[in-house]
Design a protein around this nucleic acid. Structure first.
Lengths: 179, 179
DNA sequence: TTTACTGTACCGAACGTTTGGTATAATGTC
DNA sequence: GACATTATACCAAACGTTCGGTACAGTAAA
């Protein structure tokens, strides 16, 4: 098990249990590595692992969402493609958001800047697409924020109500709602 | 310090740090009570405290939101009043949501039914108002879900971006967006 | 004297972390 | 090719700390 290969395992534990809930025992079981082996790859401990997982998530976002938003095709097509990727990312509304669970609560603020940066980049990428669709910048910014509000809110409500359809419906309405 | 009086203190700790992050040391410091005193009032330990805090929150919701939605006045007025209360509840977008932080992550599911019930009641109360405004039931239900999606999503995005204005703007647009 | 409540001391268990060391494969040296 | 050395990946066990929780003596009020 190489370091790169075990990061997705750590990712799934952190996004399911959050920082405090993700114990070394769970992380060890998920990766198949002993605690000491985890410390071999991540000398900084849990914080080091979270940083690696956040980098992994940001990289995924960059390659699967941001690049796609900046690619060819009509704005409507690109937004629709983004929704498809987002649906995969969150398991059709059944999987929590890593950024959301690490952000939850104002208590821990160590990873706040990372989360803020990732969300800002995401919103900016959508705003650029909307700008290319002829929407004025301030309105494009606001609509992009609304898009992420809808995604994150629908994720929370869907999981609280045990109803992934709410999330899927929200994603489905998103492209036309943005124009 | 009576039992009732210390519940708001427990509330603020749980909604700031979540279940795992709310240690007995923090709960003791916030209430000014020793551990023995906390266990005198809440023999069931942390779970007991969370249940009390959830009951407190549900009661607050009932008296400050649901009753208001079912009161007199035009639908628009009642929805506007709800938004004002919600703005207070979440400190203008600076305070996390207890339900959201306890719901975060699929790991812990002990309080899931409580959270689901509270959210369902809230959505139902909004849907009733929209019904009285002449909106057909299925559409009213969907719009009400969208309202909670907007509230919860805006709360998360606002706090991640350090920008409470996003939350306030969302709340401000909510009444007209529902009709 | 009874009842309600609280502070102190304490417990076992679980926590994140460190230590000491093994197995293996690659690298340098003769 | 044979051998010593180094680097990497890994683990069992233990470390000190903090966790949630308990036992008990003491205080205050009725």
């Amino acid at each position: 098990m190489t370091k790169e290969a075990c990061i997705p395992c750590l990712f799934s534990v952190f996004r399911q249990y959050g920082y405090d809930g993700a114990t070394l025992a769970k992380l060890s079981a998920a990766t198949g590595l002993g605690k000491a082996s985890l410390y071999h790859h991540f000398p900084g401990g849990k914080d080091d692992m979270v940083n690696a997982v956040l980098g992994y998530a940001e990289n995924w976002l960059q390659e699967n969402v941001l690049q796609l938003l900046a690619s060819e095709g009509s704005p409507q097509e690109r937004l629709q493609n983004m929704c498809d990727r987002v649906n995969d990312l969150y398991g059709g509304g059944t999987q929590p958001c890593l950024l959301a669970i690490l952000q939850a609560g104002t208590g821990r603020s160590v990873f706040h800047d990372d989360i803020k940066g990732a969300l800002t980049a995401w919103i900016g990428a959508i705003a650029t697409v909307l700008g290319e669709a002829g929407i004025e910048p301030s309105m494009a910014q606001q609509l992009s924020e609304d898009a992420l509000i809808a995604i994150q809110g629908a994720l929370m409500v869907s999981q609280a109500l045990d109803n992934p359809r709410i999330f899927q419906r929200t994603l489905q309405m998103l492209p036309q709602q943005l124009s």
